[in-house]
Amino acid sequence: MSGRVVFRSVWLPWLLVAPQLAITAVFFLWPAGEAILQSTQLPDPFGLSTQYVGWENFDYLFGDRYYRASFLTTAIFSLSVTALSMGVSLLLAVLADGVIRGSGVYRTLLIWPYAVAPAISGVMWLFIFQPSIGLFPYWLKAIGYNWNHVLNSGEAMSLVVIASAWKQVSYNFLFFLAGLQAIPRSLIEAAAIDGASPWHRFRTIILPLLSPTTFFLLVINVVYAFFETFGVIHTITAGGPGQSTMIMVYKVYADGFIGQDLGSSAAQSVILMLIVGVLTIVQFRFIERRVHY
């Protein structure tokens, strides 16, 4: 490439990236290394003694059919959260993009939920859907439906998906809206003059031009659904009923911080880290090819 800038000095580029490298080392490499080390150990809660057990924590996990089932639960949960939050936010962004008067108010209000902590959003949704005092079950009862997410696993899953997706809608909305506004008007107008219907314009012009944003959000949302949703699960269902909402990251928390089983918890973190790593590689390798920058 002709326009390439080359540093004359050897150490300057290293110095410039050093802060980022330091952050990565302290907040990722070090804890990840600790996790890998701990995943081969069986410590007691107080850290008074530690036994090296090799692969045993992993054997124990994969021998547990409830742990194997949590892979499927996690997949259903993550896909649902990602699809719901991205779908809704894209719809809202398209609508907000078309608003002419008072658009600032709409946009501000739609961004608000992002400032709410997951645990608080969990409590709020729990309050709305609480089987005996919640508003929503009360309405459902009026039309003859008995809502009880405490025992009904499908309802429990829907509730945690809605609560988790709701929070992320704001974030996605922000990016979708920015993406939409970056699309040149002239392209859309030209298509309109050529007689393309609004849906046709959306599908063949807007959506492809929005694909970098969509791809970016896909990665972000999958990571969010995998890692940041345990507050919601903790406050609403604690993994129940049965283990129907026991997603992997919540199990890491429950086994490690409630059960004090740090060896198993560390092994689960390592597995989770591998899964997210693989997913991100897959996304970049296969999905990014279809993204038009």
Binding site: L151, G239, G240, P241, G242, Q243, I258, G259, D261
Partner: peptide, 15 residues
């Protein structure tokens, strides 16, 4: 954790 397991299993009975 054992109580957690019992909770899960009892929920399966109630359901």
């Amino acid at each position: 954790q054992i109580r957690g397991i019992i909770d899960e299993e009892l929920e399966a009975v109630w359901a």
